[in-house]
Design a protein around this nucleic acid. Structure first.
Length: 428
RNA sequence: GGAGAGGUGGCUGAGUGGUCGAAAGCGGCUUCCUGCUAAGAAGUUGUACGGACAAAAUCUGUACCGAGGGUUCGAAUCCCUCCCUCUCCGCCA
């Protein structure tokens, strides 16, 4: 959520920054309704003051009967008028809130202008792309090795659900542990949050109200399945004022993630790249405005460290103003190399939200010098998407005989160095 | 899920219609006293939003006793709905 004062006082600036994004975001209605709302509030307060005066004169006592009756009547009428004003005020307030929640964050100045992903800027690349003769797709390799069972995933749930069998299940668990262990060593404290969250959480991190249809919602309870650990972890401190000494707070969290993938019909229909349910380790930071820039860079490096540990070629991309997420002021995507597709695919998204989420979620901190509470800055990034990491490993570590070499960093977690084509079973 | 109890300031806890932004204690802050420490004395002590001021300090208005609604000239206090916590019962990994 943007600062209403900023919108009120610098409407032109805000509008010009929003224009860099993809989409049409007008703040003029907000400015208008804000003015009306403040007028209504002033009127309501004046009426209220009069009512307070009247009731005070009652408690001081010693009023003639007629006088009391007259005042009682006046107060009743004031109340009626006040109720009418208030009805309008509440309506305006709700309208203002809804409009405000629908306005995205302003892109940071260093974010390049652009329309879509074609205008994103490659910042760096890492690793060497091995030349593989006739590279096979991860889903072909995985199916042959008995790692993925796509058909039974559909039988048990529906399309875009996959069963991980045997080494697949173990691979997923090994990746999760490698990631969490690595991040823990860098100072991230591990969290295992609820996977169902209430509506306030989704509003707090910016998924709602704008993207209502994108998430799974329970029929009988006001609860949603988390689309990312970002939601429960960021909301851990919702409506709290933390001491500056506590910052920065670094958390890492594994959760399954659930997304309806509305609007991506036909995209990545084959394979394990786009699922309704997928595993992910997420990194979340809470810090002061002064350090958020630096913490964002460090967090991105921490996500990259996993790709480097797995020796997967990747590149870092700075998203342009048209491709950046709703809440983000700046975002790096990490893209891993998929040999069979012959291109880089997103495996992590590391965003700096500034105080945008903090305003929605009421995340504040009290400065050391004891001044007024200020909004925290939030940062998060995938570290990494586990399913896509598995898919990338299968493709990048495939051998001609159909076996897959286990990346060195995963050997301690897997217990084997090679997934052999013939005996695709977890040996205990 | 059923029955009962309860949700008050940073914390403990009083308050059953006006004198309550709210007693008292603890904690915090300031000052004084004491050779240091310990102890003691006095004072002070919430948040949010709006207005005044060029701005800060400050002054001022309004709201806030779990949330929302109602009764009343007036609600922490009475009524209704919801949420949460605790105890007992039931169920359960």
């Amino acid at each position: 959520m943007l600062d209403l004062k900023l919108i009120r006082d610098n409407a032109d600036f805000v509008e010009s920054q929003l224009a860099r994004r993809n989409g049409d975001f007008s703040i003029r209605p907000i400015v208008e309704i804000d003015a009306k709302h403040r007028k209504a509030q002033a009127e309501w307060e004046n009426l209220n003051r009069r009512r307070n005066e009247i009731s005070t004169s009652f408690k001081t006592g010693k009023l003639a009967k007629e006088e009391m009756e007259a005042l009682r009547k006046e107060a009743s009428q004031a109340k009626e008028k006040q109720d009418a004003v208030n009805e309008e005020r509440v309506k305006l307030e709700a309208e203002l809130e809804q409009l405000l929640l629908g306005i995205p964050n302003l892109p940071a100045s260093e974010v390049p202008d652009g329309k879509d992903e074609n205008d994103n800027k490659e910042v760096s690349t890492w690793g060497t792309i091995n030349s593989i003769k006739n590279p096979r797709h991860h889903y072909e390799i995985g199916t042959d090795l008995g790692i993925f069972d796509f058909e039974r995933g559909v039988k048990v749930a529906e399309s875009r659900f996959t069963v991980l069998m045997n080494w697949g299940a173990k691979f997923e668990r090994a990746l999760m542990n490698l990631m969490l262990d690595t991040h823990a060593r860098k100072g991230y404290s591990e969290v295992f949050p609820p996977i169902l969250v209430n509506r306030d959480c989704l509003v707090g991190t910016g998924q709602l109200p704008k993207f209502e249809g994108d998430y799974y919602k329970l029929a009988d309870d006001e609860l949603y399945l988390v689309p990312t650990a970002e939601v429960p972890v960021t909301n851990l401190y919702r409506e709290e004022t933390l001491d500056e000494e506590m910052l920065p707070i670094l958390h890492c969290a594994y959760t399954p993630n659930f997304r309806r993938e509305a609007g991506s019909a036909g995209k990545d229909t084959r394979g394990y790249i786009r699922q309704h349910q997928f595993n992910k380790v997420e990194l979340v930071k809470f810090c002061t405005p002064e350090t958020s820039e630096e913490e964002h860079e460090k967090l991105t490096r921490d996500a990259e460290a996993i790709l480097e540990a797995l020796n997967l070629p990747y590149r870092r991309v700075l998203l342009c103003s048209g491709d950046i997420g709703f809440c983000a002021r700046k975002c790096y995507d990490l893209e891993v190399w998929f040999p069979a597709q012959g291109k880089y695919r997103e495996i992590s998204s590391c965003s700096n939200f500034g105080d945008f989420q903090a305003r929605r979620a009421g995340l504040k901190y009290r400065p050391k010098d004891g001044g007024k509470a200020r909004y925290i800055h939030t940062i998060n990034g995938s570290g990494l998407a586990i399913g896509r990491a598995l898919a990338a490993i299968l493709e990048n570590y495939q051998n001609e005989d159909g076996s897959v070499t286990v990346p060195d960093a995963l050997v301690p977690y897997m217990g084997v160095k090679l997934i052999e084509a013939k005996q695709a079973r977890v040996s205990v």
